[in-house]
Write a protein that binds this DNA or RNA. Structure first.
Lengths: 124, 124
DNA sequence: GTCGTTGCAAAGCGTTTGCAGCCTA
DNA sequence: TAGGCTGCAAACGCTTTGCAACGAC
């Protein structure tokens, strides 16, 4: 990653302006609004490069395409709404998960995903 | 799902004999040992049907093909080893995650994945 | 005998890659 | 000007689907 192009700037801007994980498709559509004609391959290439850099992190839900969000932000987890299929960020954590580890296992990180209905879907 | 074929029996047997989530490929290879000539499409079709039935559940790790395990077993979580890439089952849970929910959100289920080194990889 | 199931091969679909031209530094 | 970056289209790999034959009930 050595040069700043308007395509890369647009892709980064899209992520910086979002408070929830985005799919490649969403990024492509949003960034195309900033840089018309933007190719999908460019989005894939940049997302991959940014993820390798740690600037982005991957968020995966079973049976769905991977989403990406800014890495290095405050430690947080995710909420997956079964109604609108959106993914929200949650604040806080529970800690003390080492108690679940079998003997000899070492924990480097953990990932927690809650599933249910977001406020607007629960209201229906 | 109405008939019992030797292919379906083999696929179910493979899952019943495993204590960790398996990928489609692993299932295909193991089941082919029981039913030579087993087609991949058959494995996909049966896994999908069994998952719809709830007999199987999906386990997903970022950037990897989905794995499947018997559903309806004791509530448990997973450990993903960064050394051998295997996925292990963990016993126990932490509970009280509702405290992380924003107002108005309803939780239906949760999923926790720990990442690190399994005992044999940690020993190296 | 019926019709769900299977194996094969073709089709799909999201993602990656090769390449010639573009454009940042 | 050099070589990283882009857009396009072809290639890829995994998963799904169409179809004729098979076999469980």
């Amino acid at each position: 990653m050595q040069r700043n192009t308007k395509q890369r700037e647009a892709i980064k801007a899209v992520f910086s302006g979002s408070d929830r994980p985005l799919s490649v498709n969403e990024v492509h559509e949003l960034a195309t609004g900033l840089v018309p004609g933007l190719g999908v391959a460019t989005v894939y290439r940049n997302i991959k490069a940014l993820a390798d850099d740690g600037w982005l992190e991957v968020v995966v839900m079973p049976g769905e395409a991977p989403r990406y969000e800014r890495g290095g932000t405050d430690h947080h987890h995710h909420f997956h709404c079964t109604g609108c299929e959106r993914v929200f960020n949650l604040e806080g954590c529970m800690g003390r998960m080492e108690s679940l580890l079998p003997k000899g296992f070492l924990m480097e990180s953990h990932d927690l995903t809650l599933t249910g209905r977001c406020d607007s879907c629960a209201a229906k």
